[in-house]
């Protein structure tokens, strides 16, 4: 790509400025519909919701907004006795679930990447939940307790866990009760890992084997370093997926505080909750970056971005 570009540049140098002007013009034309949509329904809405978070919002004859600084945020952490707890359990849930989902996805990707028959079929099976399990269907499933597979949960596993000391049994039971959900959240991650694994050249494994490395060793020395960027990408994806899923208790809380007349504390309060939540999610993302970044590279974020958006980086005019 780059060489072609260099070859072209001297050729049309004399009309570059005119051409660039035209490209700009068309760029704006092409992006305009999307940009209008995103500014009206996202950017503007975001700005307003920050304003609400800092105000007392009431719906008495129209919308009355009184600026009151950080009072909503103070209330969240001093007077509310459910939301901070929910935030905490969301955070601990992330610590427990993200590593499990990512590790499971990696193992499944390794299995699905090995030479077996009907591999395409299995890949579909593991990706299927991502496609169909959203919205009402998923709500219905969790409501029915299917996500925990009740029979398995109560009868077999319960008896099995009874033999263990409680401090081991408890977290394992917790895990089992949402095991299927965890598995269902890993579809996209498995695909990302498979794509990563396919980049590892076969001869590297060959060379490792000739040098006497066992399969175990070549996993740690060859496979893992290659998919390391994918681990970060997957961790980020998992955090975002868990944070925005419909099963998320916090989202329900925010929603109730906005619209449920029985429990609501007002739009301003709910907006403040949403932003507090957004901060926790960003903090989780930051932790993931810090833990999983490539130590040798200072500008991890950009490095990751270049992997994710290979072509885009080149086109950003930064070269």
């Amino acid at each position: 790509m780059a060489s072609k570009k260099r070859a072209r540049n001297p050729h049309d140098k004399h009309r570059l400025s005119g051409r660039r002007l035209r490209e700009w013009g068309y760029g704006y034309v092409f992006i305009l519909p999307w940009a209008v949509g995103i500014s009206v329904f996202f950017l503007y809405a975001c700005a307003r919701s920050i304003q609400y978070a800092l105000s007392d919002v009431r719906l008495t004859n129209g919308l009355s907004i009184t600026y009151q600084g950080f009072a909503n945020f103070v209330n969240i952490f001093t007077t509310d006795n459910t939301f901070p707890v929910a935030l905490m359990s969301f955070a601990t849930g992330l610590i427990l679930r993200v590593p499990i989902i990512v590790a499971f996805a990696l193992i499944m990707a390794l299995l699905l990447n090995s030479k077996i028959r009907a591999r395409a079929l299995f890949r579909v099976v593991f990706f299927l939940p991502v496609i169909i399990a959203t919205g009402p269907v998923m709500d219905e499933l969790t409501r029915q307790g299917v996500a925990s597979v009740p029979m398995v949960n109560q009868a077999t596993i319960g008896a099995l866990l009874g033999t263990l000391p409680q401090w081991i049994g408890e977290p394992i039971q917790e895990l089992f009760s949402s095991l299927i959900l965890i598995l269902w959240y890993s579809g996209v991650q498995i695909l990302i890992f498979i794509a990563g694994l396919q980049k590892v050249p076969k001869d590297v494994y060959e060379a490792a084997r000739i040098d006497g490395a066992s399969a175990w060793e070549s996993f740690w020395k060859v496979t893992l370093p290659t998919v390391k960027p994918m681990i970060l990408l997957n961790a980020v994806y998992t955090i975002v997926a868990l944070a925005t899923s419909g099963q998320n208790e916090i989202i329900t809380m925010i929603y109730d505080n906005m619209f449920n007349s029985a429990v609501r504390r007002g739009y301003g309060y709910a907006a403040a909750m949403a932003w507090a939540y957004a901060l926790v999610v960003s903090a989780a993302l930051a932790v993931a970056f810090l833990l999983l970044r490539d130590k040798s590279d200072r500008k991890v974020v950009y490095e990751q971005r270049r992997i994710v958006m290979k072509g885009g980086y080149y086109n950003d005019g930064k070269q």
């Binding site: 009206v40 503007y44 809405a45 975001c46 919701s49 919308l63 944070a243 906005m258 907006a271 949403a274």
Partner: peptide, 15 residues
């Protein structure tokens, strides 16, 4: 991509 849609539903309603 990662923002929670519920948070902006009131401003959306107003818009």
């Amino acid at each position: 991509l990662m923002f929670v849609a519920v948070a902006v539903s009131i401003p959306r309603y107003l818009t």
